[in-house]
């Protein structure tokens, strides 16, 4: 059993008005205090309003350049960051590893330094190597935002998830959240566990023993291998995508068996609390971790997560941009 959330975390549900953000980088949730997390969420709240205007744009980052450094592929995170930067009036610069100088053997640091020399202010970095954004943050003058580093962290996804939870359920503190699926290889799971624990939620990670390392309990969460056993006690179920293309069937007997044991379907949903929130970071394997009925049903907030991703990323871009010397 995870330790109970301390009552002092309750005060962090809304930010202290006098709190000041001072980081030039967002490389992980691990480094952040609960006050910093709440500051990002509250700032994102203000940016949501911008998206409701007829002119969905503010000049906060006018004249700044954001480089989207995707050493590893991504569609939605990249588009979300690109649109977020656009709504802040920043210029964006695209980069994909395939066909670039990286393919010619240039190191990550050299690549980033060369692009920085062109006058870039913020780097949004996705990299297969855990810690790559952290290394860059120390070496470059510009701001660095981690958009996913291997299986390590994906802070903006975790932030938009708690933003959505807070929006739908009114709070994070005191909730019980199940994260189901491939915990071992998931940066979303790691960042989410850290965020939820810092904001005072209980976390139960659920999946087959091959995909849930027992050491994960050290992050302050419960571990379960039986989804049916936890359904009744959770306020939120976050269904992770199983990366079949990466692991094939080495880690579980078959896709069908995985789906039967760990998939969320109408029958399982009926055994949850009536207002349980169903989340998924996307892209969904329909019919495997989620049936279409559940993914598109009233408990699902999957598309809301995508919408909120924009406001959350605008908030992060804005905050770090103000701290670049």
């Amino acid at each position: 059993m995870a330790p109970k959330a301390s009552s002092s975390s309750r005060k962090t549900e809304r930010a202290d008005k006098s709190f000041l953000w001072t980081r030039k980088d967002l490389v992980g949730i691990d480094e952040l205090s609960s006050e910093e997390i709440v500051h990002i969420l509250d700032t994102a709240e203000s940016f949501k309003e911008v998206s409701t205007r007829s002119i969905k744009k503010v000049p906060a980052l006018r004249g700044k350049v954001v480089a989207l450094m995707f050493f590893e592929n991504s569609t939605r995170t990249r588009m979300s960051f690109e649109l977020a930067a656009g709504r802040l009036s920043a210029d964006t610069l695209g980069f994909t590893a395939a066909g670039s100088s990286v393919a010619k053997g240039e190191t990550t640091l050299d690549t980033v330094r060369n692009i920085e020399a062109m006058g870039v202010d913020i780097f949004v970095v996705r990299h297969s190597e855990p810690g790559a954004p952290h290394m860059l943050a120390r070496k470059v003058r510009g701001a660095v935002i981690n958009a996913g580093d291997g299986p390590h962290e994906h802070p903006t996804q975790a932030l938009l998830d708690v933003f959505t939870i807070r929006q739908r359920l009114g709070r994070v503190d005191g909730l019980t959240v199940a994260i189901v699926g491939d915990i071992a290889h998931s940066r979303v799971a790691r960042s989410s566990i850290l965020t939820l624990r810092k904001l005072g939620a209980e976390v139960i990670v659920v999946g087959p023993p091959t995909l849930v390392p027992s050491a994960i309990a050290a992050m302050g969460c419960q571990v379960s291998h039986d989804l049916d056993a936890v359904l009744r006690e959770v306020d939120v179920i976050n269904m992770l995508r199983v990366q079949f293309e990466r692991f094939g069937s080495q880690l579980f007997p078959s896709v069908r068996e995985y789906s039967r044991l760990y998939g969320l379907n109408a029958d399982r949903l009926a055994r949850c609390r009536k207002d349980v929130l169903v989340m998924h970071p996307g892209p969904i394997n329909r019919g495997i971790e989620l049936t279409s009925e559940v993914a598109d049903g009233p408990n699902s907030c999957i598309l809301q997560q995508v919408t909120n991703g924009l406001a959350t990323r605008m908030a992060v871009l804005y905050l770090v941009s103000q701290c670049v010397a």
């Binding site: 709190f19 000041l20 953000w21």
Partner: peptide
């Protein structure tokens, strides 16, 4: 109106305070 996003003297500060929504 919250004018924070429209200011031209933002970077002259020590930290970033909370910005509130325009209503």
């Amino acid at each position: 109106l919250d004018i924070t996003f429209y200011r031209d003297d933002l970077s002259r500060r020590r930290g970033v305070p909370l910005v509130r929504a325009t209503e």
